[in-house]
Each structure stands twice: as structure tokens, then as C-alpha cells.
């Protein structure tokens, strides 16, 4: 028994000093193996129990088991102490530069006109208008005659036209789709027509290709008030606030009466006499509009004695310029990435 007791004391003292000096979980694990492992020192002592005289065995067994349990307890305590320290160290000792650029491809860029078209379409769709399309290469009937513009009519001078062979032309407005849609769907009808249009014109505010959004509503008992209601709702939504609107008389062969709509300058609200956007007038022209001419309804196969309607056309490029504060229309179609990606992208 004496031998065992001495061993226990020795082991205990070595164990305690080793454990005290252990700095991490690995070292603690080594200590566990050295003392409590299959070939560990305590385990070896336990194996020697059988060699003791039978009367000493119970006491020696109890002592050894106590030793093992208390060591197990010490190791566990030490382990959780160490773990806590290591977790704390992981936060205090590690760092990453969160300002590094994101890895992988950045977001691209939308085209201002396509974006405006999408927003405009959604606004009008919420008012019950459906999208309609028509060809960009048109014939004379749909682009002119069906819209109450006979050959040699001076109104043709209002729109300088690109012609192709075979008396085809590039549509000068989205209005041809009015007649096509009336023929296709009849009345009642609510459509919007977003699309490319072409005129033989090029300067800072005119591009030979541009985009219009046409609208047509045909129903019974339709008034100018309804037209104004739709367009003002649109203007307020697309520019994000309630804008004053005003109307002026105008002339389009396919509407009667014909009007122009201006909205309060989205930049200066009329408060800046040298405003670059409204040129100090306080107003921005945004749409031509009017009540559909009976001849146009007839060209679309609709009985003008029963139905009437209204139509408008607006330049999407112009609305994009106003909304995003841009001043040169031609850059829209050059694909310049410094212009398009001014909000993001990598270069």
C-alpha cells in the first residue's frame, strides 16, 4: 500500500505542476493522455492493483479512483478555462479590412431610357393600360393616312421622315399602333405603346432615333378631364411628387381638340430664372395629347358615334433627361460606359 500511496503523491504533484503550466488545449490533451490515457500513469497504477495483497486492494482502488476522478475534474476545468481564452483571443487578435472592394462582378447598369420606359409602363398598367406593339418599319397608311394626314398635307412637314424603298418608312411616331390596335381589338380599349421612333433630325436635343410612349383609350363618354387625370397621375408618380400641370392648345392631325401638357419644372419649380432645365420658364413640356379624331377611330374600324377616346404621345428620352438631369440626348445611344456606369461598375 505504501508504494501506491507514494506513487499517488508523486503523480499528483507532477500532474498539478504540468497542468498549471499547460497553455492550450493541445497541451492539456497531451496531459490527459499521459496520465489518464490507456497507457497513462494512473491507468498503469490501476493495472498493478491485481498484484497487491487482497486486503490492500479495496483501499488502494479507492485511492486511485479518487485520484483519477479529481484529475479528470481538474483537466475539464482547465480545458474550459483555456477554451474561453482562445475564443476571446480569436476576436481580439483577428481583423479583416471590411472596406476592401467586394469580390466577384459588381452590378451592371441600366439604360436610363429603358428604365424610364419600365417605370412608365408600370404606372400606366396600374391604370388599366396594356402594352401594345407595332412594327418600326411602317407603311404610309398607318404612319400618316390612317392618322388623318393625307399625302402632301403640310402636317407631314412636322415630322421629317426616313424612307425605305417600296414606299415603306421608319415610323415617325408610335401613333401607327393606335390604328393597328383598334383594328385588332376594337373598343373599349386601353393601350400604351412604348417604342423606338425615327426622324431625320440630329442635334443636342434631337436624335434620329428616339423613344416614345403612346397611349390610347377608347370607351363611351370619355372627356378631356379623364385624359388630364391619367397624365397628371403619371407625371406625379414618375417624378415622385405632385407637380402643377398646365395645358396649351396645339395641333395634331389625329386628335381634336389637340393640346400640349407642361408640368412644373422638376428642378426649380419655377423659382430659378436661370434654370438650365426649364430655361427660366418654370414649365417643362412633357406630352402632346388630345381627343382621338373621329377619322382615326373610323380608320381603326370603331364607330365614332358610339365611342370616343383620347390619345397622347410623350418622349421617353426627354422624360429620362428630366428625371436624371441629363442634357445631351445623343449620348444615350453611344453605349458609353463611363456615362452608363456612373453609379457603379468596375473599370
Amino acid at each position: 500500500m505504501g508504494i501506491i500511496a507514494e506513487d499517488v503523491r508523486r503523480i499528483r504533484s507532477v500532474f498539478e505542476s504540468e497542468l498549471a503550466s499547460a497553455g492550450n488545449l493541445d497541451e492539456i490533451q497531451k496531459i490527459r493522455v499521459r496520465f489518464l490515457g490507456r497507457k497513462g500513469e494512473v491507468t498503469s497504477l490501476l493495472k498493478r492493483l491485481g498484484a497487491l495483497p487482497p486486503e490492500e486492494r479495496p483501499e488502494a482502488g479507492r485511492v486511485l479512483n479518487e485520484l483519477r476522478d479529481s484529475m479528470e475534474e481538474d483537466i475539464s476545468r482547465k480545458e474550459s478555462e483555456c477554451e474561453g481564452k482562445e475564443v476571446a483571443l480569436r476576436e481580439s487578435g483577428e481583423w479583416t479590412d471590411v472596406t476592401l472592394p467586394g469580390r466577384g462582378r459588381p452590378w451592371g447598369a441600366f439604360h436610363p431610357v429603358a428604365q424610364i420606359a419600365q417605370e412608365a409602363i408600370d404606372i400606366f398598367a396600374s391604370m388599366g393600360f396594356s402594352v401594345a406593339y407595332g412594327p418600326e418599319v411602317e407603311d404610309d397608311f398607318h404612319n400618316f393616312e390612317g392618322l388623318n394626314i393625307p399625302p402632301h398635307h403640310p402636317a407631314r412637314d412636322m415630322q421629317d421622315t426616313f424612307y425605305l424603298e417600296n414606299s415603306l418608312l421608319l415610323r415617325t411616331h408610335t401613333s401607327p399602333v393606335e390604328v393597328r390596335s383598334m383594328k385588332k381589338w376594337g373598343a373599349p380599349l386601353r393601350i400604351i405603346v412604348p417604342g423606338k421612333t425615327f426622324r431625320r433630325d440630329s442635334d443636342q436635343t434631337h436624335s434620329p432615333m428616339f423613344h416614345q410612349l403612346e397611349g390610347l383609350l377608347v370607351d363611351e363618354n370619355i372627356s378631356l378631364a379623364h385624359l388630364m387625370g391619367c397624365l397628371e397621375a403619371f407625371a406625379n408618380r414618375i417624378f415622385g411628387r405632385n407637380l402643377a400641370a398646365r395645358y396649351r392648345g396645339s395641333y395634331f392631325p389625329f386628335t381634336e381638340p389637340s393640346l400640349e401638357m407642361d408640368v412644373e419644372c422638376v428642378v426649380c419649380s419655377g423659382k430659378n430664372p436661370s434654370c438650365r432645365i426649364c430655361k427660366g420658364t418654370g414649365w417643362l413640356e412633357i406630352s402632346g395629347l388630345g381627343m382621338t379624331h373621329p377619322n382615326v377611330l373610323r380608320a381603326g374600324g370603331i364607330d365614332p358615334t358610339r365611342y370616343n377616346g383620347f390619345a397622347w404621345g410623350m418622349g421617353l428620352d426627354r422624360i429620362a433627361m428630366l428625371k436624371y438631369g441629363l442634357n445631351d440626348l445623343r449620348v444615350f445611344f453611344e453605349g458609353d460606359l463611363t456615362f452608363l456606369n456612373s453609379t457603379g461598375g468596375d473599370r
Partner: peptide
């Protein structure tokens, strides 16, 4: 996916 949308002339 990082693309920029462009609109170029039809002619």
C-alpha cells in the same frame, strides 16, 4: 451579372 444595358441605333 455585371452587364450594362445599351441602346444603339437601329441603323
Amino acid at each position: 451579372r455585371g452587364y450594362s444595358e445599351v441602346i444603339t441605333y437601329s441603323f
